[in-house]
Design a protein around this nucleic acid. Structure first.
Lengths: 199, 199
DNA sequence: CTTCATGATGCAGTTTAATGTATCGCTCCT
DNA sequence: AGGAGCGATACATTAAACTGCATCATGAAG
């Protein structure tokens, strides 16, 4: 593999990870099989431009040709500010996913639960933030507290605790360092409060 | 063909033409068959990344992935300032080629010709300029005058005329609009005052 | 009119990316 | 221990890029 092809493969992988996408998720978005993505990122194939474009678009990137002498400038323009580790971003997304599911479950099983409305309001506010700005530890605590409510015990203490945690995470996100992550969209590519199939 | 693939193909062609390269010349440089280059520029093939890289490198370009939101900035960085028409650049290169050959002929057939040294000095200065900055009309006149000297008639008037023209072209290039042609090298990719095979 | 270079196109044959499916080993979590 | 999701890999098959070579039409130059 030549320098550039390897470089491009690496950039694809970096962009994917920066968004916390798995190869399978990206596969769905780009319409390229997971197996093929694996090969591409490994640099074991000489991929076609159409594949590159498909993947790039799914990652909100654009393949372009730039003059060698303009390269440094372009590079500095397209730095992906990664601040938070990919692992943490992925983990945070998972937490949000589960929180979202739990919230839906609550809404169904106990729609009249006192405080549920406030919880939902906080959550929808929370979801307006970009994932990398969210505090992973806080999300974890929040998720655990929420799942406590969703059990037969109906722990009311857990509910007020959840409200507190939810607002705490939201506030942290609002006041935290600004981390202007260039090319990371405010929401992951797939919807969180997604379709239905159970309602 | 998707938008980007077409765009990339177009950029390749633009870059090639901006350098006044024929498909065959580029073919030699990049190691990609002329037929294939034609197909690629026409956008009738889904080229492989290796091909793209080969062509791009031959044109002093680099394929990169840039974030969508950084695109406008990158685009403005990599504008190929084309001011002079491709046709004229090609034509100018040909004129220079022929001038170079004529100069070599003179050097061999009449090394002691008065003024030849000055002519050569002017020419070597002239060659320091980028082709697109050179005045095509002046080059044509210069070439014709030079070829007059190189005939049996040994037209001395043509010689002083040549010196004048040579300096005129040189001066125009020196004072003309700056045309900072991003990605156009100061010399065409193939050498003009080339190897030897006659010396 | 002839010559020459250019870009486009055709064709046979080879190479290889792409795909679908399935599996494997790994790590993390319960 | 078991399950879930991850990335890597294997296989057979299909589709298509690539190659080398030959040709053709066009347009410019002598």
């Amino acid at each position: 593999m030549s320098y550039d092809t390897a470089d491009i493969a690496a950039r694809l992988q970096a962009a994917r990870k920066a968004r916390g996408l798995s190869q399978r998720e990206l596969s769905d978005l780009a319409g390229v099989p997971q197996a093929q993505i694996s090969r591409i990122e490994a640099g074991t194939v000489d991929l076609r431009l159409s594949s590159l474009v498909a993947l790039a678009h799914a990652l909100d990137l654009e393949p372009t040709l730039v003059p060698r002498k303009a390269l440094p400038a372009v590079r500095s323009l397209s730095r992906d500010a990664v601040s938070a580790s990919r692992k943490d971003i992925v983990a945070a997304q998972k937490e949000i996913q589960r929180i979202s599911e739990t919230m839906r479950g609550l809404q169904i099983k106990a729609p009249n639960l006192e405080g549920l409305q406030q919880l939902q309001k906080s959550f929808s506010e929370l979801q307006r933030f970009r994932v990398p700005t969210l505090d992973l530890k806080g999300l974890k605590q929040l998720r655990q507290a929420l799942e406590l409510i969703n059990r037969p015990t109906q722990d009311m203490a857990a509910l007020s605790q959840s409200i507190k945690l939810m607002q705490s995470v939201r506030n942290k996100a609002a006041h935290g360092p600004v981390r202007d992550a260039d090319d990371i969209p405010s929401r992951p590519a797939y919807s969180l409060d997604d379709e239905d199939d159970d309602a």
